[in-house]
Amino acid sequence: MIDTLSYLCIGVGIFFWFWGTLPLVGDRSVLFKLHSLSVADTLGSMSIVVGLLLKIPREWPLLVLALISLAIWNTVLGYVLAYCSSGGGD
């Protein structure tokens, strides 16, 4: 049961990865790509880590740390990239 759930989480995460990364190839603006990348990519990565957590609960401190740093750092990085690419508010 747990095994199926973890595979489901990892599968959903990989689907989100493709969903977030495929717009990167098109001719859209940087901010559009950044939006899809930061939302879908981070959600996909977190879902994969949750899947791994269900698979091996013994390594929980490590994987929880990975979850927290993904959630915080990727959000901050999205803001920083948007600020820098749009000319720096001057």
Binding site: G20, V30, L34, L37, D41, T42, S45, N74, L81, S85
Partner: peptide
């Protein structure tokens, strides 16, 4: 900036 986006995606 497109290259930077690709880099951030690859790094994570």
């Amino acid at each position: 900036w497109q290259t930077m986006l690709a880099f951030s995606s690859i790094a994570s």
